[in-house]
């Protein structure tokens, strides 16, 4: 469930319905994944999952797996 919702957010942010991501996918695998896209992802994920990341967390994720772990941690603690 979480995986499919995360994938949907990625596809919306990058405006690519064919985009596929795995836990090891990182910025270097997605051509348009720059610092602006990273922030758009964070904000879109916050809205999708109704969570808030701290500013110190932003940018600490090296790959999609890191991002999902942070999300699960937030959702588990909620």
């Amino acid at each position: 469930m979480l995986d499919s919702r995360v994938l949907r957010v990625f596809r919306e942010v990058f405006d690519d319905e064919q985009l596929a991501v795995s836990d090891t996918t990182s910025a270097r695998d997605v051509p348009d994944w720059d610092s602006l896209a990273q922030v758009k992802l964070v904000i879109a994920l916050e809205q999708e999952f109704d969570v808030r990341f701290s500013t110190t967390e932003i940018g600490t994720w090296a790959c999609v797996g890191d991002l999902k772990r942070a999300l699960r941690s937030k959702l588990g603690a909620a």
Partner: peptide, 8 residues
């Protein structure tokens, strides 16, 4: 990154 997040 943090400033961009705060801006948006």
């Amino acid at each position: 990154q943090i400033l961009l997040y705060k801006y948006m």
